[in-house]
């Protein structure tokens, strides 16, 4: 908890790289855009919807400042799993979790842990772009910040620009920040959602098939943004796109479901290169080579 506290105090400085040199001893040595994000570790995780067990006995180490891709056929629990990583799973009706998920060594399902605090540190981007339709582009980006404490207008302006730059959207929207978020195209909306997530300065970013509804150009832009983002954040991404996983990720987890109605399992987890070139299990090979799924 000690460390988290420091983090919150410093989040303001982190948000605006220019001012980073001031005050915080902890961050002083780092280059503006480099930042050691936190790692995650999952042990013996089961997740349920009511009586239905969706995933079983997942164990995984998520390395800091790397992109971890989760692949596998539909309905095998990838999305359920990624939602357990920031306690969004329990928002669904009957959503329930067993096992532990450690963020920097601390169980986010611990007794005294507030899910609200967890989600501030572990951001999430959803499958379907979901900007807030009643807000402007600007307000969408700062929506999360406004939940926390008061920021000065100039400070917010800096954060908005920084976040939109990181999500590769700035140039397209800088002249219409006061337009509705809904005026953007689907791909732009999704990058707006990424910017919104970045603005609150999380440690980990979860992306649940962020490009599944987007055209190839938008997908490319998001992938490019991801490569940039991992310098600062730990990234977990669910994807159906094999090329995307092999191009953009460092580690890959293959989820598999043996029979209909069985819970999904983490079938194989290794460096991306290994999963795609010499996987250990036959199902993994069949999947990555496109023989099913």
């Amino acid at each position: 908890m000690e460390r988290n506290k420091t983090k919150e105090q410093t989040s303001k400085e982190k948000a605006t790289p220019k001012k980073q040199e001031s005050q915080t001893g902890q961050r002083q040595a780092e280059a503006p855009m480099e930042h050691t994000a936190q790692s995650m570790e999952v042990n013996g995780l089961n997740a349920y919807y009511g009586g239905f067990k969706a995933i079983t006995d997942i164990g995984m180490k998520i390395a800091p400042n790397k992109v971890t891709a989760l692949i596998g056929p539909s309905g095998c629990g990838k999305s359920t799993f990624i939602r357990t990583l920031n306690r969004m799973h329990e928002v669904a009706r009957g959503g329930r979790v067993e096992g532990e998920v450690l963020l920097d060594g601390e169980d986010i399902y611990g007794k005294n842990v507030d899910p609200v605090q967890v989600r501030r540190k572990i951001g999430m981007v959803f499958q379907k772009p979901n900007p807030f339709p009643t807000m402007t582009i600007y307000d969408n980006v700062v929506a999360g910040l406004k939940l926390q404490k008061r920021h000065k207008k100039g400070e917010l302006d800096d954060i908005v620009e920084g976040s939109l730059r990181q999500s590769a959207l700035w140039d397209e929207v800088k002249n219409k920040l006061n337009d509705s978020g809904m005026s953007l195209s689907g791909g732009q909306q999704q990058r707006l959602c990424i910017a919104r997530t970045l603005a609150v300065e999380p440690e980990v970013i979860l992306l649940d098939e962020p490009a599944s509804a987007l055209d190839p150009m938008s997908t490319m832009k998001i992938e490019d943004a991801m490569l940039e983002l991992k310098k600062r954040y730990t990234i977990v991404i669910v994807t159906h796109n094999m090329q995307q996983a092999s191009r953009a990720s460092d580690y890959t987890g293959f989820f598999f479901i043996e029979d209909m109605g069985e819970p999904g399992q983490l079938w194989e987890f290794a460096e991306t290169e290994k999963i795609f070139t010499r996987p250990e299990r036959k199902e993994t090979e069949d999947y990555v080579t496109g023989r099913f799924g």
């Binding site: 969004m88 609200v116 501030r120 807030f132 929506a143 999360g144 959602c193 919104r196 609150v200």
Partner: peptide, 9 residues
Amino acid sequence: REAMLALGS
């Protein structure tokens, strides 16, 4: 709802 919750609301 999820979008706002995921921002730590």
